[in-house]
Write a protein that binds this DNA or RNA. Structure first.
Lengths: 333, 333
DNA sequence: CCCCCTTATAGAAACGTTTTACTTCCGGCG
DNA sequence: CGCCGGAAGTAAAACGTTTCTATAAGGGGG
């Protein structure tokens, strides 16, 4: 409970508090001899700068917010790893928010971030309401969208083309001979789910099929458990020749349920996931999937955010769109 | 950039700033009519409390730190989910730190947490140096150990018995007929790795084998990739009849490498992981593992931490030790 | 030798909230 | 009828930094 403040350091080093602050923030501005004396005092007394006082006075914090849809999904974990790597060298802190797909929870998290006056926010939004993000911007908090295209021009966003991904995935399934395809998706409030479905329909149309024949099974969450349940429904209603899942977690659940019911994959049903998480390659029947530059998503978004915060004048907003990549494995042999 | 402060709210509602603060923090203390007027002003002006100012004056923040060894490991993700669930209802923020097994990085993260004057810290320490944590305590920051036994009596800790887990795992392998066992582990600076090894040796001794015959392969990280590499080494040096891995990520890597080399699991080599992450059940050959109450670990640790912060006088420090549970699957049939 | 300019440091105000001590107002009790 | 006590609200100080302005010291040129 020492609570040693900048004043104590100043007294101990025989300088003024202002000089200590300069040592901390603009070391170049202070004479080497003085600086050393101050630094000695700092470590002798075990001084740790009070971040809140600093934030209050300086008007900005050394903290960013990261709001994701599901921290249990390795996709977002890898994004977070990218964020962490960029941020930790700078002594920034990351406040993590998990919206769990709920807009209410996301709102609560954003409010917490606003109270903390974070420097900026990286967010994969749960829904399609840009207004809530604009509120943050009104408070002077920069926002960069992750895995989501920009809502507006004066905003950075790093995304992956989900329509193209959905199209490639289903085109691949169709190329393997499937004519009936089911799409197992998470909540259709989630943009990614909607766009991958649109991509799927594009592929069907291109193959001369009726896009409306795409059977859509909407799961409540994007988890393996929900995938199992969705697969049970599919089995009950009659299996299609191919199943495209909105992410790998769903796909792993579907795979488990199918195999448990004695359905052979890919012989009877071909299966595609999305995200290409590490575990996709390791599953019972290795899973074909759409690979995304996940870690890069986190890294680049963070770099854009920090640039926007540090150089508000010269910063050029960017809309980056990656293309996903098909990874074919056993589940679509 | 509105920056509406408590003063603006006070002026707008025709009260003093102190009263607004009371509405915010002790709503019972202010007359209903006044309260309503203030609340109206708050929402009309879009006021958001400045957390740093609050922290500075009040002397404590509404933030906790969470420091884990590897955010990419689903084990820790699930712990984090438990933490998040407890904390988010209270409007607390979680600052996430990923030590990636490096003590330096952990130190940096702890420093950031200290600067932020977090209310408390949940940590799965990377190494065995209690001093760094004592430094936090000197700053009035409570620390609860997660997945680690207490360093000292006046401290909360929530752990799982790793010696028992290692013993049970290897006993299970031996019960399936294996006589030669390899232990694929992460860095032996990590306590869990050491204790699971000790448990493994106990099991060997109990089975009448020489504990020193346990072949130990130490990987640099606890990831699937490192597991693949370790398996390659094992193959080169001659395979044991059973492999016990310090966690499921390593085990999945080992499994992948073995299968790719044409080694049959479990016929030629039996394999056990640890943690029972979701993906263990879904892997090519489903993975036997040691299940831990992961989500509960996070929940309970958080509850202990908050109790310690909120009721420093009545709080009773607890050392909770769970027992892991063997889950046998195909990899040890 | 003096003056001015540069550089280094000191001093003080300000950031937005919480909290303590104090005032005011009422109703009830002695 | 006066006083006391509680309720409701106010005013002002304080939290630990940062940053602005001003001052002091030192050095070089006239």
């Amino acid at each position: 409970m020492a609570m040693v403040s900048i004043k104590d350091v100043a007294a101990h080093a025989g300088v003024s508090p202002g000089t200590v602050s300069n040592v901390l923030n603009r070391p170049g501005k202070v004479a080497p001899a003085t600086r050393e004396r101050v630094e000695a005092a700092i470590s002798e007394l075990g001084f740790v700068r009070h971040g809140s006082a600093s934030t209050l006075r300086a008007g900005h914090s050394r903290t960013i917010g990261l709001s994701v849809i599901d921290i249990g999904n390795p996709f977002f974990t890898e994004v977070a790893a990218g964020v962490e790597d960029v941020v930790s060298e700078l002594g920034y802190a990351v406040i993590l928010g998990n919206s769990a797909g709920s807009q209410d929870k996301e709102d609560r998290n954003l409010r917490v971030l606003a109270e903390h006056r974070v420097r900026g926010v990286l967010i994969t939004p749960s829904g399609e309401d840009p207004a809530r993000l604009d509120r943050l911007r009104e408070h002077g908090i920069s926002v960069v969208l992750v895995d989501h295209p920009a809502h507006r021009p004066d905003q950075c966003a790093v995304a992956v083309d989900d329509v193209a991904g959905g199209r490639a995935a289903v085109a691949h399934l169709l190329s393997k001979g499937a004519r009936t395809v089911a799409y197992v998706t998470g909540p259709l409030t989630i943009r990614q789910c909607v766009e991958r479905r649109e991509g799927a329909k594009v592929a069907m149309r291109a193959a001369g099929l009726d896009p409306d024949d795409l059977r859509v099974a909407e799961a409540a969450t994007m988890t393996a458990r929900a995938g199992e349940k969705a697969a049970a429904d599919l089995i009950a209603e009659g299996l299609p020749e191919a199943v495209f899942c909105a992410n790998d977690l769903l796909a792993l659940g579907v795979l488990r349920a199918l195999l448990r019911s004695g359905v052979r994959v890919p012989e009877e049903v071909a299966l595609m996931g999305y995200d290409d998480i590490d575990f996709a390659a390791a599953s019972t029947v290795s899973l074909s999937s759409m690979r995304q530059p996940t870690y890069q998503l986190g890294r680049i978004a963070t770099e854009l955010l920090l640039d926007e915060c540090d150089n508000p004048d010269t910063h050029a907003h960017q809309h980056i769109m990656f293309q996903p990549e098909l990874v074919a494995r056993e589940s679509t042999q």
